[in-house]
């Protein structure tokens, strides 16, 4: 039954929260370069199951992105994706 389970699963690469792995990276709303990594081309926030963040850091990222959007450092949406 082990093999059965293994075959069904299409091996999701085990993701590790990069902020847990490297605590030197600070999440800051003033740093759109870092946050850009966690939004889609259209400007949507990438969910945790894709980005691999842990709950705590995803929360911080979300907070930071929303702040950055408010102060026009990041887009709410991109009307015409290139």
């Amino acid at each position: 039954m082990v093999t059965y389970r293994r075959r069904r699963r299409s091996f999701p690469r085990r993701k590790v929260c990069r902020f847990c792995a490297d605590s030197s990276v600070k999440i800051d709303y003033k740093d759109p370069k870092l946050l850009k990594y966690f939004i889609t081309e259209r400007g949507k926030i990438i969910p945790r199951r894709i980005s691999g963040n842990c709950a705590r850091h995803q929360r911080e990222i979300t907070m930071a992105i929303k702040r950055a959007r408010h102060i026009a450092l990041m887009p709410y949406t991109t009307i015409q994706p290139h």
Binding site: R13, R14, K15, V16, C17, R18, A21, D22, S24, V25, K26, D31, K33, L34, Y37, G52
Partner: peptide, 12 residues
């Protein structure tokens, strides 16, 4: 934070 570029590689 220049660490942005590199993908977070899972330790295992």
């Amino acid at each position: 934070t220049e660490v942005i570029e590199e993908e977070a590689q899972p330790p295992e």
